[in-house]
Amino acid sequence: MSSGRQAAMRDAYGDALLELGASNPQVVVLGADTTGSLKSGVFANKFPGRFFNVGIAEQNLIGTAAGFALAGKIPFAGTYAIFVPGKCVDQIRNNIAYPNLSVKIVCSHGGISVGPDGASHQQVEDIAIMRSIPRMNVVVPADAVSTKATVKGIADIPGPFYVRLARPSTPLVYESGFEYRHGKAEVIRDGSDVVLIACGIMVPEAVRAAASLERRGMSAAVVDLHTVKPVDSQTIVKFAQKCGGVVTAEEHNVIGGMGSAVAEVLGESRPTPMRRVGVMDTFGESGEAGELMKKYGLTSSDIEGAAVSLTSARR
């Protein structure tokens, strides 16, 4: 991450679907009236027979995807995050997770970076909901490059997935490439004083925070915990042990999200002082993404501040 280039995860999703469509005839794509926005529409143009727009009917979107999976297809189904984990938790649980179906739910517009649409469209509970469903895998990619690799990677992994994408174009973390390794966190930077564990669009923020901490004389490791479930306990414990302090950063409620997953691991395996950067159990509001990230404490300086306060508390 150096050039400052940005790209949209949604474009990457569309690119990945196009490649999957060509390489795997079992892949079908389902949408719910947001297919232009999610870029799954590009799949529709190339493979119209394998694309299904079910309209504004998300529960049927999930159920129909399950029906496809039961008949041997690999369905990718998605719309905006606000309309799926909350609205369809019963269908996700009973139609997909319980029978362990290979339905890949990919949703855009996770978190408050959705922006001007306001709190009704800002999904800050999805990781918590999806993580609590047995057999469900939860992945929150950090940028467009890893999004593409993730979408292509999970097509070959049996079982249900939830992939959460963000609406805005975001800085590229993995310009030099990314290989999706299921359940394996990506260590972006080594360090010894504190480990910053982030997911989604908070990963570039964590990288920035680490650079700034370095200028203050603090050595911060950065871990991209893209696969929130199954969680990479080994990497979490290893860096907690090495650094002695953990800061998590996610664009999600601090209750039940990725930070909670890390706290669960550390609480049982290696209790370590930690701070959680995230949405502090509140709803968002209208505003530009950048303004909201600032107001709700989701910037690199918030991560940096958490790391500094954690370190001074330990002294």
Partner: peptide
């Protein structure tokens, strides 16, 4: 398929029928 929660079975039929046609 599993069942028990009401109202969610017909969607499975829709998906399976579309797959059969495909």
């Amino acid at each position: 398929a599993p069942a028990g929660s009401e109202g969610i079975g017909l969607s499975l039929g829709v998906g399976a029928s579309l797959a059969a046609r495909l």
